[in-house]
Design a protein around this nucleic acid. Structure first.
Lengths: 317, 317
DNA sequence: CTGAAAGCGCTTACAG
DNA sequence: CTGAAAGCGCTTACAG
């Protein structure tokens, strides 16, 4: 029944007879019992900021598919970027003895992650890392693609480029900021940066962005560092009755299926969902198989793609 | 430790002493052992068409939150509307002894669902039902809101209204079609219906829709019965260089966060995500608590909301 | 090589 | 009322 009939020297006919009977009574091993005996549950948990975010839900879908083929099931949870909720979730999953942890970690859970690793549990981080943690991780080259995106605006004639971003010390965000700054530095211009709170009310954020754009009316382009900031920003721009890209060029970090259908279409940075998912699951399976546990941790950095569309087309003036 | 100290007559000091120690050694009961002993796993599975679809991922997020507070964890899976995959998943979850099944069922799994119910497992359906199944379910009034949506187009002066929908016998889709037909019947006009295959290649679907609109050039409005059909339809309309709503009014079933930011903004039917999720979890918890197991099954039908925007504004001619 | 027995960590029925 | 023992369904080390 474990597929080792041949090497154990059990006759073919016995094997078929037994397997037929197993099929007939539709025997299915009890998972709790297996879990109790082996300590393995064939379950991997995945914690992201928000499972309803298109980026994370697409990743979830892709990972689910790959993991399922390997006999693993994935449990999803949304951390809401909340440190305490993430800590609680980790405890919750430990009780459930999940085999592996795939995390897009919120800030402040360094210690909890290190405990997992110390206890020899499989951990793979993605989208971001935390300082002081040695874990396998899969990242996108946030700095490089952000630099390229802003550089693209510059090459198309935009000069006073603003960045609208979160108040955040998280590495994926600081890297995006670093890319923006490096590109702006090359034209020796000043930064126009507006920070938004993650937990603030969307309506007041729209107001904030609106005021920012209005006050800095020399701005001729905006780089939004996340999709939901862009959503609020597009509303602000609409309220201000500014034309895209004539009055304001736009580039957004994270693509959306609908951006290519906007009028004008929206230039966006597309993260390689499929590749990220594949690498994460591959690293996870390697850890679960026992290989690589003692090895040096791997950090995989993938390139993202700038989807150039109309919202950043060359300035005519 | 089970909170029954008082009624068992254990002194307060002993209680605190024990609980303190429990906390110190951070004891956590083993879930597999509990599951093995009690047959309960405090886990609910949820099977939807595609976890990356914004409608389903929003539902997932909302359900996760409610269930988590009640001590339940949710396992998600995408069926891809594939009968065999759904059957496999059900078997997979049975082995794992999940306590409850929340399903947006694909066609052809009637028997599997009835087996679950016969075995006294908790089952709640949502988004759609299947004929011949007696299970608790939560639906949206697809007929009513579709009727209202098409009626709204008629009231705004549109006369030759097309419907672009899936080839599908699923109840949520046939109800949307029925709503369309009832509204068109009232102006005694003909139906313009284009059916699309769920598994066809998106690019060829865009071509199909384009040809349909082009050939029936008297059409002055389109009702898209799902969000992804609208996505393809908007691309087709763009390719044909038709103006919305001057050349073609638009209403879409399922709202998208970005529809209000389009130019023009897109009129859409918004399903009550929060309410659906609450009702589903409530029914599920009722079944899991043992109440209502033997009771007649409940069918809850919720109203949806028509978000009227610019893509369906009154015709001026 | 094979089959019986031990034990994973709980919960609960039961003897004292 | 309380504490020890049985047993959930597996897997695997071990005796025969």
């Amino acid at each position: 029944m474990n597929g080792k009939g041949a090497e154990k020297g059990i006759s073919e006919s016995s094997q078929t007879r037994i397997l037929d009977h197993v099929k007939k009574i539709s025997y299915m091993p009890n998972f709790s019992a297996q879990g109790l005996r082996t300590g393995k549950t064939k379950t991997i948990c995945m914690m992201v900021e928000d499972i309803a975010d298109p980026f994370f839900s697409s990743i979830a879908r892709a990972m689910e598919e790959i993991a399922y083929m390997k006999g693993y099931k994935i449990l999803y949870s949304s951390t809401e970027n909340n440190t305490q909720k993430a800590k609680d979730l980790i405890q919750f999953y430990r009780r459930r003895q999940v085999d592996g942890y795939i995390l897009a970690p919120p800030p402040g859970i360094e210690e909890d992650i290190n405990e997992l690793i110390d206890d020899n549990l499989a951990v793979v981080l993605f989208d971001r890392t935390l300082i002081g943690i040695e874990a396998d991780n899969v990242l996108v080259d946030n700095f490089d693609i952000s630099y390229k995106a802003v550089k693209h605006l510059i090459e198309n004639g935009y000069r006073n480029i603003a960045m609208i971003t979160l108040y955040s010390e998280q590495i994926q965000m600081t890297e995006r900021e670093r890319g923006y700054k490096e590109a702006v530095d090359e034209i020796k211009n000043t930064y126009f940066i507006k920070n938004i709170g993650f937990y603030d009310h969307p309506a007041s954020n729209v107001q904030e962005i609106q005021r920012f754009i209005d006050l800095n009316n020399n701005i001729d382009a905006v780089f939004f560092t996340t999709n939901y900031l862009a959503e609020m920003g597009l509303e602000a721009i609409r309220n201000l009755k500014l034309r895209i890209p004539e009055d304001l060029g736009i580039v957004v970090f994270d693509d959306d299926k609908l951006f290519r259908l906007f009028s004008p279409t929206i230039t966006a940075i597309a993260q390689p969902i499929g590749e990220i998912s594949e690498h994460v699951i591959k690293l996870m399976l390697m850890l679960l198989s026992g290989k690589g546990v003692k090895k040096a941790k791997k950090s995989i950095v993938l390139p993202a793609i700038l989807q150039i569309r109309e919202s950043s087309r060359p300035k005519s003036d």
